[in-house]
Design a protein around this nucleic acid. Structure first.
Ligand SMILES: [Mn+2]
Ligand SMILES: [Mn+2]
Ligand SMILES: [Mn+2]
Ligand SMILES: [Mn+2]
Lengths: 218, 218
DNA sequence: ATTTAAATTTAGACAAAACTAAAAATAGAT
DNA sequence: ATCTATTTTTAGTTTTGTCTAAATTTAAAT
């Protein structure tokens, strides 16, 4: 497994190619900021190795072996992110870039020990579930904040957009995972919300609410 | 800086190319288990980038920039080794291989935080000094156990050979860094030593003694 | 059923990093 | 000073991974 192959598998998985859904070379190219022709080349290589099913002009999907590999990379990525935040005081907007490198380190013992050191976390700093060694996800009944009704409330458990600007915005506004948020009111005009969080009331735009996952607690 | 370039710089440094001493392509090739012709190619590339001085048929030596880069890789390598032993319970014979990968992770903040987490160690698990951020070594007055006189004693502070078999041999015989060793007697015939260590007496071959560094404490 | 636009693949090139085999330079021995 | 064995470099190939430009296929619109 080369680093590049691993990155392709991970991207295909994130685009939904794990459920035998066909992902177009264009979609992969856009996600990876590369050219479609490069993706075609890699699709052939990965197909050759039995990691993806590739049909010309149709797209690729992951084989079982491909899914397994993708999940192991994602597991490593998310565990390293937790490590960086919990043990080295990185902020949640700093970890992704470094984890992109660390996820390719090859040592089963290393990642198992990191897992143990962190006491087997179930979610990464952005609320994304960490696959277990045998590739199982911790599924969670979560909804976007923008989609729960007025007067209901929930705990903030994840972000949909985990870009640096969004994460920094959340920090600035003291919105953090674990906070309990209650939807007080919705503004029809722009879909903005009036919410109550940790005692304080504030107004947030639809764009923000549509990128925050909450777990309803009633 | 590619991974391969970094590995070449590190190797050249270890072979003594840091003191403007010229290292032959053959020596580098042997050390890296590659072919001399490949080394020549890389010598040109590194020379082009100003990291080594290369004279055809003579060899290469590191420029100041080359030394600086080499030291930063070595620093990372040794800090990661300490991390693996101290925080993840790796044994000293397991760490090198993983550190060979981790040393190439690019994040100044990461390695500084690891340094801090470990409380700024001065030596790695094999007793090798860890360069500081600004490339200074912690020099130590150490001698090979085979070279100190009868009846003198010292603390075991490092290994010259850090191959897996040697390290495992030391473990098996309960020889560890930090142990105090006294040379009782030398056998002229085969240069083997009778030593006293942590209360017990034992006999060790010249080959062992010639690969253990001690710091004389008188 | 054509035509056309968009998506996708092919062909050809390039860079990094390695290799083998052949050529060239160096150093040691006569 | 010449020969020779060794070291080192060059030339030409290979693999991985990328790119551009051209060709091809697909899908949508007339
Ligand atoms: Mn991430
Ligand atoms: Mn994440
Ligand atoms: Mn090492
Ligand atoms: Mn070491």
């Amino acid at each position: 497994m080369t680093r590049s192959e691993e990155n392709y598998l991970k991207t295909i998985f994130h685009l939904g190619g794990g459920d035998s859904k066909s992902i177009t070379t264009n979609a992969i190219a856009e996600q990876m900021e590369t050219k479609p022709s490069s993706v075609t080349d890699m699709a052939k290589r990965l197909s050759e190795k039995g990691l993806v099913d590739y049909v010309r002009y149709q797209g690729v999907s992951l084989t079982d072996a491909g899914v397994k590999t993708a999940l192991s990379i994602i597991r490593k990525h998310r565990l390293w992110e937790v490590f960086l935040v919990k043990k080295l005081d990185f902020t949640w907007d700093e970890v992704h870039e470094v984890a992109e490198q660390l996820e390719h380190i090859k040592s089963e013992k290393l990642i198992d020990k990191i897992d143990e050191l962190l006491d087997f976390p179930k979610y990464d700093p952005h609320g994304d579930p960490i696959p277990t060694k045998d590739g199982k996800f911790q599924e969670r009944d979560e909804k976007l904040l923008s989609e729960i009704p007025i007067n209901s409330q929930g705990v903030c458990v994840g972000v949909k957009d985990s870009s640096v600007p969004f994460l920094k915005f959340l920090d600035k506004n003291k919105i953090a995972l674990g906070n309990t948020i209650k939807v007080m009111d919705k503004e029809d005009f722009d879909n903005s919300l009036r919410i109550q969080m940790e005692g304080k009331e504030m107004r947030i735009s639809h764009q923000i609410a549509a990128n925050l996952y909450v777990k309803k607690n009633d």
